[in-house]
Design a protein around this nucleic acid. Structure first.
Length: 200
DNA sequence: TTGTCAGGAGGCATCAACTA
DNA sequence: TAGTTGATGCCTCCTGACAA
């Protein structure tokens, strides 16, 4: 695809066409975990994809793995392992993987941060955060990324194991549940303060 | 300038898988 | 087996780009 061919389509102007072409180019640089998520394998969302890529560093390794190998990953059970093994057995899916490889899409781990750096900044290790409402300046993905970089974990559901709820504008029912469970609440400013300070 | 359309973001409910 | 968690689908609202 190129801008010229796209602009011939209905409701597709120069600007949208350029953005689409750029987005396709950018998508090829997304991490392997993100690509795995995008394959649409049943039960493999963003979290499970991340877990899987920590053991299976490339699409080739995962494709060759047996369900029993996949099941060995903490958090992955027999249903999910079976779903993954079956997905890679389908010839149309094997063809898709080949085409993605040929197109230059990332299908292996490309480490860009050393373990030393990771450990140094992991002062939130063991802490679980839940985001609710719209944060004033940060996007959800950005807040999640910052917390994870500091070693914390972000989940979508409030439970007794949740340590902090980060509350934005128009919070949902998660805030009510957090209040019921007596979980500490943080504003975006407080969260940023903790992250900048490097300690809780 | 205005109406239309598509997509992103966020919330919520439900279901199913996983762990302890 | 209960509690926890993630996946999924649906909804609403908002924004930006396009066409007329």
């Amino acid at each position: 695809l190129n801008v010229e061919s796209l602009t011939s389509l209905e409701r597709m102007g120069q600007k949208s066409a350029s953005k689409l072409v750029d987005a396709i180019a950018t998508s090829k640089t997304k991490p392997w975990a993100r690509v795995l998520y995008g394959l649409g394998i049943r039960h493999v969302g963003s979290v499970n994809a991340e877990l899987l890529t920590q053991k299976f560093f490339s699409v080739g390794k995962l494709a060759q793995a047996k369900a029993t190998d996949i099941e060995a990953v903490y958090g992955i059970g027999p249903e999910i392992a079976q779903s993954i093994e079956q997905w890679f057995q389908v010839s149309a899916n094997q063809e898709l993987v080949k085409r993605l490889n040929n197109a230059g899409v990332t299908t292996e781990v490309r480490e860009d941060i050393s373990n030393v750096e990771k450990e140094k900044s992991a002062f939130l290790a063991g802490k679980t955060f839940v985001l609710t409402g719209t944060l004033p300046t940060l996007k959800r993905d950005e807040a999640k990324s910052l917390i994870e970089t500091a070693g914390g974990k972000v989940t979508s559901t409030v439970s007794s194991k949740t340590n902090f709820v980060v509350v934005g504008k128009d919070p949902g029912s998660k805030l009510q549940k957090a209040e019921k469970l007596g979980i500490d609440q943080l504003s975006e400013a407080q969260l940023l303060g903790i992250l900048e300070g490097g300690r809780l």
